[in-house]
Amino acid sequence: MTVHAPVEDPTATGGAPAIRAEGLVKTFGPIRAVDGVSFDLAPGRIYGLLGPNGSGKTTLIRLLTGMARPTAGHAEVLETRMPSREVLARIGYMTQAGGIYPTLTVGENARFFAAAYGVRGNEGVDDALRLVDLADRTDTIAGTLSGGQLRRLSLACALVHQPPVIFLDEPTVGIDPLLRAEFWSHFRDLAGSGATIIVSSHVMDEADRCDELLFIRTGKVIARGSGAEVRAQAGTGNLEEAFLRLGADVEATR
């Protein structure tokens, strides 16, 4: 079997990409967590960053948001080279760990992050809480919320400043199917209003909800395209199977 070259971005229309990675490398000692990643991501689409645990998804997101310094290469968001404080105010980042203050109320958490993003007024906060269906729980202490409610609050805190670029690091881990479906409809709404969304996941059945997939393995993008394209590329009707096959190809050529 031959190695499949990553599929070119089919949506490239000549417009400026929302996110650009340019030869990104990040090493931790001998480990190459991100190993030469380059891509352009178009605005208004949902991108799925798929890969097993430890494949470098979170490190890649941290490089793109400017929170980690690349060993080589660089990242651009909204045509600005990262790290940039100005651009951080226009990025939403839902971290894998909750990142919520348990002793504060729902409203206090959201308002605090809004202030951290430099938002004036409560409009964004109210919208974000309404979006995740927590508008009637603003006075509830976050520590007393259920797991799913906490994830929803965490999502809201990443949206309080109505960012045009949103990174969601495994947002649906530990969430029941019903809530997961809700989340995806939120993501779709946000993309519909022009936001670029990068969702990392190791759950393949979420992949088909993305406009485009980036398969990550040992720090490299091993395939890119819509769900159908990736299936075709791997010669299988099953994404999980496709991922395994493409991964095996990479292993074989090492």
């Binding site: 980042y93 894998q96 909750g98 990142g99 203050y101 992050f113 951290a116």
Partner: peptide, 14 residues
Amino acid sequence: TGGTLERLMATPIT
């Protein structure tokens, strides 16, 4: 450890 610092560092806060 609660992940809030990571999250704060993703905001323009210095």
